[in-house]
Design a protein around this nucleic acid. Sequence first.
RNA 1: CCGGAUGUGGUGAAAUUGGUAGACACGUCAGACUUAGGAUCUGAUGCCGUAAGGUAUGGGGGUUCGAGUCCCUCCAUCCGGACCA
Length: 813
Amino acid sequence: MQTNWIGKSSGAEISFGVKAMNYGNESSQLKAQGPQLTVYTTRPDTIFGVDFMVIAPEHELVETITTAEQKQAVEDYIAYVKSRSERERIAEKKISGVFTGAYALNPFDGREIPIWISEYVLAGYGTGAIMAVPCGDERDHKFARHFNIPVTNIIGGYYNGEEANPTKDAILENSGFINGMVMKDAIDVVINKLEEKGIGVRKVNYKMRDAAFSRQRYWGEPFPIVWKDGIAYPMDESQLPLELPHVDSYKPGPEGEGPLANIKEWALIPNSSPPAEKGAAKVPKYSVYAPVQYELAKQMRKEYTAAEGKLWEVVRDSKLGYKFRRQHPVDRYIADFICLQEALIVEVDGGYHSTDEQKLYDEERTKVLNTIGFEVMRVTNEEVINHPLKTGRKIKERIEQKRAESSQFTPLHEVEKGQGVRETNTMPGYAGSSWYFLRYMDPHNDSEFCSRKASDYWNQVDLYIGGTEHAVGHLLYSRMWTKVLYDLGHIGFDEPFKQLVNQGMIQGSSRFVFRIHGTNLFVSASLISDNGTYDGKQLDKLHADVNMVDGFELDTETFKKWRNEEYADAEFILEDGKYICGSEVEKMSKSKFNTVNPDDLVAKYGADTFRMYEMFLGPVELSKPWDTKGIEGVHRFIRKFWRLFADELKGLVVMEEEPTAAELKVLHNAIRRIENDTERFSFNTAVSNFMIATNELTDLKCHKRKVLEPLLVLIVPYAPHIAAELWSLLGHTTSVIDQPYPVFEEKYVKETSKAYPIAINGKTRTEITIALEATQQQVEELVLADDTVKKWLEGKAPKKIIYVKNKMINVVI
RNA sequence: CCGGAUGUGGUGAAAUUGGUAGACACGUCAGACUUAGGAUCUGAUGCCGUAAGGUAUGGGGGUUCGAGUCCCUCCAUCCGGACCA
């Protein structure tokens, strides 16, 4: 599960010479001898199958190697790539590319290989260039077909001419010195040869995910960092720990920082050091982005559109009175223009923002940027080009309006000069969760995180139960820190957890309302036609809060008052006087308004019922939508269990008599099954075994202490509150938690006979009770004497009688 | 597209090694006790059929005396990942 995240791949980096020729770029000094093009590949064994090379549009060699004839085509292509948003590039599978006019040389046979540019190669991964082997790689193959590049087959019959085959088992053909070798084995041979010739090196590549160790949120450990003059200083150890202060509001700070920025007393540190440049301390706060993005932004800064160029002239050098940057990475996006001090982003809409999909993307982008505190303003290409100065004034007006609105806050950058400013971002969830289990072993230690003595005693965590997201995020980092601490000798184990169980998610059951697009009219679900329209009109599908829906029926009055009366003017098209909602099972999430508050259920049924009901829903590792339908059953069980001990009127009814064989059998069956279920995390069947035992004891009218006390100990992990309560009701003064676990004894559940199912040709027809120690012959006699069996035999003799002791009997006719 | 998981009644589900499919609950129906019942208790309840019986674990095929379980294949849903060279 974690391999995708660590993204380790091993292969080789290979340098290809580029054929010397007359390049379009006259200033190139590489006319005599071509430059080197370095690629990364996991499959060096396919080197003789390289039919073309592809470099990323942002690749540094693009300008250098493009020939004069291809110059225009390449420029057009790069302009096209630039015009596409990051997301389009990732989402669309469109094949596009352009030939540079240059050729690389195969280091082994000198074959000339055309070099292409295509957006399917990413600047940020590997070297930003690949060697394309169409017969072995599907993307390369599609590219080759699209541009009619001849395909060299190096894998013989494994390649059918239609589809690439990424096999490693083929025997190589058309492959020079590795002809006849199996591909797997050739990988090493080629790498060795490359290294020998000095044109390549063995290399392991990693991709990093979630590398940014910072969040603009409240909940997280604060960084012990103080910014001064734009430089981060770690706090002195004597001032640690830095504690998360109380906040009244979790809203973003005045400039879109984390909520901590709202607490001036905490964030600002009086200081007499030299005055910081205005705003300097804030700049790095927005620098939470991947290096790839930084590179991309740099590139984009060089290749701006006409409108962007004009607007830059208007806003650059604080001409508007505010400092603007252009093509600046923010979160996962790159903003066209940004004024960090005022948290305003100005986007220039090119002509390509016209389709619905692009609009959706823009909306989402705006939403994300808003969430982290930026206001997004859009201007069109036309207005910038026709009225650049007017656009500038418009931007300035917007800023001033924004300042007026937020004047109740003192923006951090306006504080007295010379003050330090705390980092207001906090650490991500996995920061603390990566090692807290170690701290738990020694929580009061104030000289180190955990003494070696304590960690040696407690050792690894026996069992880790978590969801699948945790398995990648949290587990990955706890494993890393554990390994680091082990290498440093602070702990004696290098894996944090002995066993992992992935529990499923409790999903939400969302409810939807359907609004006719552009109106306040809401249509009840079953009136909507199959193609998702009503009366031919488009509908907006909106989440409605599940708490104002009874089953599927919407409480329309509550709905009108919902979200500060956002839908106060709503009108409804009902069916049978009701508004029926649509429903879907989704992840439970506040944004989907499908969360339910367990407090209400706990108040109604108690925590034990709630706990057991969650267990009873099904296997832990499965996800299922939250549904309270069955909770009554569990609650009834708990009351029934209670009645074994006490009567509403008579109080305690426990008797001291010796239990009967039947009662002991119930108890010991329960011990065996529940112990077994608990050990294999089959909590749902354990709960049902408690129910079975309780039902059986109720039927036996058993209220005997010697049966009930062990049962109480069994139930402690499942219903701890009532277990403790009943334990004390039984007159004990010690805790039930300290009781030894009941021991199963075979002798109480031993049977002497069994009611065997009798099957004729595999189909069960009747049942005969036979002693367990019966022999094959005795069984056959008994079975053949049975009326039902005789009826099915119709006087014939059976071919065979299969007798499996303690299981079943099958008569084959 | 890749990887992982899951498909069983009206519903949540059970079925240690291939051996009585649907335990335990919810729901529904009938009944008891009740002024009442959203309390408690009893019984019934996969589907078709009066019954005998037939049929049934996503679809199709196979192995076996016997398959929810093992094998092949197709389909659906969910989760995770994804231009990763």
